[in-house]
Write a protein that binds this DNA or RNA. Structure first.
Ligand code: FES
Ligand code: FES
Lengths: 142, 142
DNA sequence: CTTTATAAAGAGTTAAATATCCTAAAATGG
DNA sequence: CCATTTTAGGATATTTAACTCTTTATAAAG
């Protein structure tokens, strides 16, 4: 995968929250169960996302998490990179120490284009957009 | 990166060997030094590549490794996948459990195209081709 | 035949990612 | 105030990848 599991869990959780009714509070354990993510581990990820302002958290009875506007307006790339660091790093596909336009390997030109395309793919739409298309496409199938 | 370090080391070693004079025997330690790879670790990788038939190994004084025809004719993808398992797996960029044309997420169509392009990029040229273009492009710069 | 140089093989270590467990803090309901 | 529920935070455990060390096998050179 192009993300680590940690990043994948974060995105799954965020997209899950993005598809819930406005202002609904969802417990960490419920997300874990519905998305099949180790629950304690997800709790940690949600904690971090709360710090970053991607979710609001509410303790105690009736508490839980909800997605913030910030996260709704962020791209998948932004959130994943916040959680796990750079995605698809700048390294050379043939193993050169430096990947640069100046000292390109034989595959550099094509690879740098593809890399840009990947970044564009996961950064051009907001979580809100992805989630709403998700609902459009997927709900009927479920 | 799209490979693990292990896969990257394997490719670096193979491309290094591919650029040596025909039938020259190169010691594991020399490759490690020139390519700046942990030497014992590389030795293990070369061992595995010897088993897979990508390099021939010769023990004793004057011994070392040389690349085989099989490796010369293989693609980078084939070698990396043999060493480290599938590259850029089939998982969904938005975290769906299944990535499939039947139940596509909003980014699926573009992503599956990109994935194919990446695979094509690192599988359409043989190690021999890449190494020779390497020499053409890079030698003057050194 | 002995020494030396090299790869092979296996065991052991370290480090990083992933996952679990336990206690504390906060909010709610009685 | 007390009990319960839920997140917060820290400690610990497990797993996997990365790296190292040691011994053995093999070949060549003297
Ligand atoms: S130099 Fe090889 S991909 Fe950029
Ligand atoms: S279903 Fe999401 S990328 Fe294929």
């Amino acid at each position: 995968m192009i993300y680590t599991k940690t990043g994948e869990y974060a995105i799954r959780a965020i997209l899950f929250l993005a598809r819930q009714p406005q202002d609904a509070l969802i417990m960490s354990s419920e997300i874990a169960e519905r998305e099949d993510i180790p629950s304690h581990y997800l709790a940690k990820i949600l904690q971090r996302m709360a710090k970053y302002g991607y979710v609001d958290s509410f303790k105690g009875r009736g508490g839980g998490f909800k997605i913030t506007k910030l996260a709704q307006d962020s791209s998948i790339l932004e959130i994943v990179e916040r959680i796990e660091g750079p995605v698809i790093t700048l390294k050379c596909v043939t193993g050169l120490k430096e990947c640069s336009d100046e000292h390109p390997c034989p595959l550099h030109d094509e690879w740098s284009k593809l890399r840009d395309n990947i970044h564009h793919l996961i950064s051009s739409k907001s979580v809100r957009q992805v989630a709403s298309e998700y609902n459009d496409n997927l709900k009927p199938i479920k």
